[in-house]
Amino acid sequence: MHPLSNSSAPAASSDGRSIIEPPLQRSIADLRLQVECRDGVSRLAGLRQRGCLKLLFPRRPAADALEAVLVNISGGIAAGDRLDCSITCGTDTQVLVTSQAAERCYRARQADAAATLTTELVLEAGARLEWLPQETILFEGAALDRRLLIRMPASATLLLAEARVLGRRGSGETTRTLALDDRIEIVRDGRPILVDALRLHGDADIRLRRAATGGGATAMATVVLAGPDAAAQLEPVRALLDIAPGVEAGASAWDGMLVIRILAREAAALRACILHVLSLLRDGRPLPQVWRT
């Protein structure tokens, strides 16, 4: 249970007028991780964690790679939170970052500022970073402004998956009010190659019912592979998407990257499809424990 989730006071008094509400306690975090490669092994070169974002380093997925698990100890995201995360993957490092649990983004009150999450990932020459957090669940009334910025050279490889689910899984809850700005921007050698911006404001449930938008989907993911061999994976990924049950999906490759978009009515179908895609794009190497349970 999120420590602040019980404080969502009604946004209006019984006569319908707004009432003055006291400011909520906000979560703040500033997380900085640096990884370097020494003797062929990726190691921690620097770690600073202030506030509610922490990293765990559970095990070595392979002898030479570093795995880090993000934990938000506040239990979820509330309006006004400000979480900053910066990860630098040094030359030739291999890094996998995931999250311990699905991130939950709770209802904001009418006058609250959106929660702001800013993540900057920097890859140096020859680095491979896998950014695979679990899905973000947006509850009715959530207000989230999230930026994911990646800077990389052409020699580096990036695999990222971002999944968003509207409403409580399995409860049939609808999301009538949402303020979501969720942007992924990839800059390679100083030039932007992808700006993928999901913006959903207002009645997300109705908005996503239309044929051009979501066709009734409430779970959506973007998977990107950027790197020297990205285009070679297009055909295998398409073959996989063609037979994935319960999803509407597409893939395309251009400008040194492979982009996959997946929509589903059920979060479970989305997750299953992402798992298959990641398994393919990671050459069958086992996914982190948190993804497999």
Binding site: D181, R183, V195, D196, A197, L198, R199, L200, R207, L208, A211, A212, T213, G214, G215, A217, M220, R238, E248, A249, G250, A251, S252, V259, R261, L263
Partner: peptide, 20 residues
Amino acid sequence: LDEVGGCCLLSDIAAMRHET
């Protein structure tokens, strides 16, 4: 420029699937 983007996800998927 912060306001580019949107939620026409199936239109984007249609553009991808047109390739094949």
